[in-house]
Design a protein around this nucleic acid. Structure first.
Lengths: 159, 159
DNA sequence: TCTGAAAATCGATCCCA
DNA sequence: TGGGATCGATTTTCAGA
């Protein structure tokens, strides 16, 4: 993991804004848009990657296309010793689990799970969650419809 | 919005798998990895985009780099008429709100919000949520630490 | 850190199998 | 659909300021 301390200027923000919207934008296109040479853009992008400011580039795939029509959030109460996130790490290993958050309050986790259908969810709870020691209880919230789902951050306009 | 009905074969799955891991992978590299001609890969990728199977390419940016250290989930009870997601659409317009899910049960929404700090969250609740008519109550869950956070789908190995 | 130029590589389109 | 060839565009490296 590289350093995070790094002063981003307005040009970096613009690059991040463009890349956040379309990660496949050419260096040449970015250069044209910002009125700079492509090589300068390349240097900055490389630096943003090295400094772990750009973490990765991913293609967002339509879940329906892969028949993953079910989305659920599950609150999990666990008997973890504070600071030792053993249960959290085990949860993170489950492929269908997209997110694992350690939440305040009931010494628990909130996880986001994508399965084919209700049967897939039951299956996951029985076979994957059921085998993790330390889980005391779960409370499941089913998503009927997703109105918005993106990872985009609000990028400052001035520093 | 294009059609979704489309039979994906094993090669498509492999392309999706590669793109999901690194959206900036060259057609040429994919072609080499799958032992095919670059032009064939290009055709398939274009088709996957046109059919809305690949929805978009985005760069995942480190929230800490933009000083967005606070992540929260908020349950929102709303008096929406069923099917008319007016409140949901208003919630989706808030830039700091990354996700809006219509959830089963308490005729409500679950939203995911990223702010700089606790003050930013209070500010958002007061100024943005506070101005949306139809919100009855909210319940906020603060994330202490995120163990896993990705959008990757489980891509089938056989069809 | 940017520019500009040069070389290697890639994207996109064509026709043919 | 996939393969091979082509041309134009892009990536990447390097020197200089």
């Amino acid at each position: 993991m590289a350093k995070l301390e790094y002063t981003l200027d307005q040009i970096d923000y613009q690059i991040l804004r463009i890349m956040q919207d379309n990660a496949r934008t050419n260096n040449a296109d970015i250069a044209r848009e910002l009125g700079m040479a492509p090589s300068a853009i390349l240097e900055r992008v490389k630096k943003l990657e090295q400094k772990d400011i750009i973490l990765q580039y991913n293609a967002k795939i339509n879940p329906d296309a892969l028949d993953q029509k079910m989305l659920s959030f599950i609150f999990i109460k666990a008997q973890d010793i504070i600071g030792v996130q053993k249960v959290g790490l085990l949860l993170a290993e489950i492929p269908e689990v997209q997110e694992v958050h350690d939440i305040a309050g009931d010494d628990g986790y909130l996880i986001k799970v994508r399965t084919n259908d209700a049967a897939g969810l039951v299956d996951l709870m029985r076979n994957s969650l059921g085998k993790i020691e330390g889980i005391i209880s779960t409370r499941t919230t089913i998503v009927l419809e997703t109105v918005k789902e993106e990872q985009k951050l609000v990028i400052p306009t001035k520093k």
